[in-house]
Design a protein around this nucleic acid. Structure first.
Length: 555
RNA sequence: GGGCCUGUAGCCUAGCGGAGAAGGCGGCAGCCUUCGGAGCUGCAGAUCGAGGGUUCGAAUCCCUCCAGGCCCGCCA
């Protein structure tokens, strides 16, 4: 699919090429300035001419044409302007004909596995971890839209200390818990068992023994453990489903022990010159790969011969890499070192390397979230609170108390408020931010969509052969609608879903300005404007679906 | 001791080599005889953490320092 701005960019490149200027960096300035621009400062040295002279000369040699309406030289830049009439006409037609597919990019014929969440199934998700599934799910949606074949995966750590502790707790402790949701009920056993383990040597040994048996590949025990963690995992997924997050596949860590692949990989790594042994434990010395200090030793096995988590992670990535062209992992920043170690190991084995989106933590004003210290806000609490807050807002506005609507508004507010911040930025959780429903927020965007729907309900839309727009608020809106595919590309290339959240806001904001300036129903330009409203509604719907949010007809 | 990330107005954020640093919240002043006011307009508010450097050009790149987060276990 070639979109108007793509065609325009090609025309600009072609023009410059006709003068012998190839491979120059063309930039996209602020839209009030121009649509594309060529800065001439670097050419200044080779051509031995002042930049403004170069710009003037280039501009004078080029003629408008094709998608280019006008070429101007300004202060050392050659500015290119797109043919606005054609842009408006073609963009509107394109949106109205492509509908839900508008903005999609060509099929890449590449398979992507997005691994996200992968939380230990020992209790409910708290909001400190909620960033992970929201980033992962949104990125997966964007990649699909961008033409990739995407599968989402949850890597289930079914043989680590946390699950073993949970298992021990459930088997040995007798605790009455009223909670009906399994993740919330079982976490109490986990917490109790953790406490006991700290002060009771025997408990610790029993748990260690469970871990050891798992690592040795005790299928029966693993099955028993699965019976315990499964309901917890289902509880986690139930919470995620509330946020419109679904998972395609669950991959159990134990499979890489059971099928022996971890040990094959360890053997291969152990034969490398970087390998070493301490007792019987095998490690790689990563000094040469830029990892210094006391953590340069990357251990793959324990001295009892069993594999370590990171070794299994390597096996998992090799397995994944055989099933995908691109791997994208969503990980908390605390996993940076481990991810780097795994990356080096994969490289040494000549295997595919994953891209990782790291996110910073969500903490509370009092400090980092901790289930143990009771300093947590669970995702379910946040969701419940958001929904009840959305209901209040509806009541406040004298609207109908429709459960489907306020549930949707509450949920989407959470998703939006989390996704709009770049992943590498730490977030301090504050209820008023997490539940924000005005300004840069989900309801702002949904409201624009509901407004479009409301207008369209009141009038009959008939398509035209040609669309003509003149008001600057119309043009600004259309330009924003036309840039949708560019934002998809940017978001995918930079692996940053926050870019799409920002785009959604811009569309809604530009629509509000258009709405203020341009009367639709009853105006001379009603037919054109109805088409523009229709197109805006479509783009809002498409972008909302990328964010996992619902396009509401009313709210 | 070693390393990664972040620092932009009272608060939250965008921009990450190019053209008066862009939004939101909060504050102040306005906008309902127009299609939904979860909206819109205007005003005030920024030595882009500090100091050096590279460059025709630095919030953006490099170095040093300061502050905050995160990691450095034969845990996961």
């Amino acid at each position: 699919m070639k979109y108007p701005f793509d065609a325009f960019r090609e025309d600009v490149i072609k023009k410059l090429s006709s003068l012998g200027y190839d491979n120059l960096r063309i930039e996209e300035p602020k839209e009030e300035i121009a649509d594309l621009a060529l800065p001439c400062f670097q050419l200044s040295r080779t051509l031995k001419m002042p930049p403004d002279k170069i710009a003037e000369e280039v501009a004078s040699k080029l003629e408008a044409g094709g998608w280019i309406e006008k070429i101007e030289a300004t202060r050392g830049y050659v500015n290119f302007f797109i043919d606005k009439n054609r842009l408006a006409d073609e963009t509107i037609k394109l949106i109205l004909s492509l509908k839900d597919s508008y903005g999609k990019l060509d099929d890449k014929n590449k398979k992507v596995i997005v691994e996200h969440t992968s939380a230990n199934p020992n209790g409910p998700l708290h909001v400190g971890r909620a960033r992970n599934p929201i980033i992962g799910d949104t990125m997966a949606r964007i990649l699909k839209f961008g033409g990739y074949d995407v599968i989402t995966q949850y890597y289930v750590d079914d043989m680590g200390r946390q699950v073993a502790t949970l298992f021990w707790g459930v088997k040995n402790l007798d605790i009455e818990v009223e909670e009906s949701k399994a993740d919330h009920r079982y976490v109490v056993f986990y917490q109790e068992a953790s406490k006991l383990m700290e002060k009771d040597e025997r408990v610790r040994e029993e748990i260690n023994n469970i871990i050891k048996r798992c690592e040795e590949g005790d299928r029966e025990l693993l099955q028993e453990i699965k019976k315990i963690y499964k309901p917890v995992l289902e509880g986690i997924m139930e919470s995620l489903n509330r946020l419109h997050i679904y998972m395609d596949e669950f991959v159990e860590e134990s499979r890489f022990v059971l099928d022996g692949s971890v040990y094959e990989i360890i053997e291969k790594l152990a034969s490398l010159p970087y390998a070493g042994e301490e007792g019987k434990a095998i490690y790689l010395d990563l000094e040469e790969f830029g990892i210094h200090g006391r953590n340069k030793k990357f251990f793959l096995t324990r001295s009892n011969g069993t594999s370590l988590y990171a070794a299994r992670d390597i096996a998992y990535h090799i397995w994944k890499g055989n099933r995908a062209d691109i791997m994208i992992n969503i990980l908390g920043e605390d996993h940076k070192l481990e991810a780097e170690q795994v990356r080096i190991a994969l490289k040494l084995l000549n295997e595919k390397i994953p891209d990782v989106i790291f996110y910073s933590f969500v903490s509370l004003p009092e400090g980092r979230m901790s289930t143990r210290k009771g300093r947590v806000v669970y995702l379910d609490e946040l969701i419940d609170e958001a929904i009840s807050r959305a209901r209040e807002e509806l009541v406040k506005r004298g609207r109908e108390e429709n459960e489907k609507i306020y549930t949707e508004i509450g949920i989407d507010a959470i998703r939006y408020n989390i996704i709009k911040v770049n992943p590498d930025k730490a977030i301090t959780f504050r209820w008023e931010d997490a539940l924000s429903m005005e300004g840069e927020s989900a309801p702002f965007i949904q409201y624009a969509h509901a407004r479009c729907s409301s207008i369209l309900r009141k009038a009959d839309f008939h398509p035209l052969n040609h669309y003509d727009f003149t008001h600057q608020s119309e043009i600004k809106l259309i330009r924003t609608l036309a840039k949708f595919p560019d934002y998809i590309t940017r978001s995918i290339n930079s692996r940053n879903p926050a870019i799409i959240a920002d785009y959604a806001y811009r569309v809604a904001s530009d629509f509000n300005i258009f709405y203020r300036d341009c009367k639709v129903i009853g105006d001379d330009k009603e037919k054109e404007r109805l088409a523009l409203v229709m197109a805006t509604k479509q783009v809002l719907k498409n972008v909302l679906s990328l964010l996992g949010m619902e396009a509401l007809e009313e709210m």
